[in-house]
Amino acid sequence: MTALTTKLPSRFLPVLATVVLFALTFGVGSGLYDGFASGQVIANLFIDNAFLIVLAAGMTFVILSGGIDLSVGSVVALSTMVTAAGLKAGWPLPLVIIAVLVIGSTLGLLMGLVIHKFDIQPFIVTLAGMFLARGLCFLISVESVSIKDSTFRDVATAVIELPGGVTITYNVIIALVVVAAALFVLHRTRFGRTVYAVGGNEQSALLMGLKTARTKVGVYVISGFCSALAGLLFSLYMLSGYGLHAVGMELDAIAAVVIGGTLLAGGVGYVLGSLAGVLVLGTIQTLISFQGTLSSWWTKIVIGALLLVFIAVQRGLIRERR
């Protein structure tokens, strides 16, 4: 009870912990390996994880509202498939982009409606969505479809020079724009604050006269849209569409959000935390590739350990809250 007065700092604690963790892992890397502490390594963190940043931003909305979205990995795969197949069939690029974004958002809308109208657990509904989207990929083609469209390849390989000789891709710009937009929506709009309210106490939010239904469905539309956008970025990154792309990526996104300090129970968390979460995951991967002899599966082991620690910390925070 007495600890309640010191509440405000503890809300930021998980995010702060993630940022410190990022600095620490990066510091360790810089100490161990020459060339680790370069601008390009940081830039590569963003380049290699742009799609995950976008996914995590969308996932942050869902988890903040107290839900979960397991379909995002499959929607990424479906988006790569639609992109590749569409371009192969000779559709103009803008049409392909619009089609992908509409498909992703629509899937999110459908799942959100089912969750809300029938009052079904998001876990099970998005699990169904996950199978559905994955299955749809193979309806288009069972093989990997490579992307040969020249405009698309140009965009994929184009680099932007930053001061200091560091280069980034357009993917990074898009990912950062998404994060900025998410920040604005979550903190500056009524919709965003309602997401927090619903995650904090849905019943109260309803009695406060907030539009909980619209908000609950809305977060899945946003997550669907972000998945589709991440799918486009992933297509740029891989230059192919394949039904087995992004297997398990929904779990990476959830891991990043949780490591970023968002409470799985909803109501507390920050999109910048999720960004930091992605960067932590990326840094661990980079560390292991610099090390050279360890299997890349060590990334998974470290992520698993980190997740456990963060969930335990959250548990402690929730207990304190009650």
Binding site: R188, T189, R190, T194, G200, M208, G209, G267, R321
Partner: peptide, 23 residues
């Protein structure tokens, strides 16, 4: 029936909060 995770001001005004520049 309020949201304990939000600020006092938000709890009082959420749903009819003043806006500026779309936010």
């Amino acid at each position: 029936n309020l949201c304990a995770n939000l600020t006092v001001a938000e709890n009082i005004l959420l749903g009819r909060e003043p806006r500026k520049l779309g936010g």
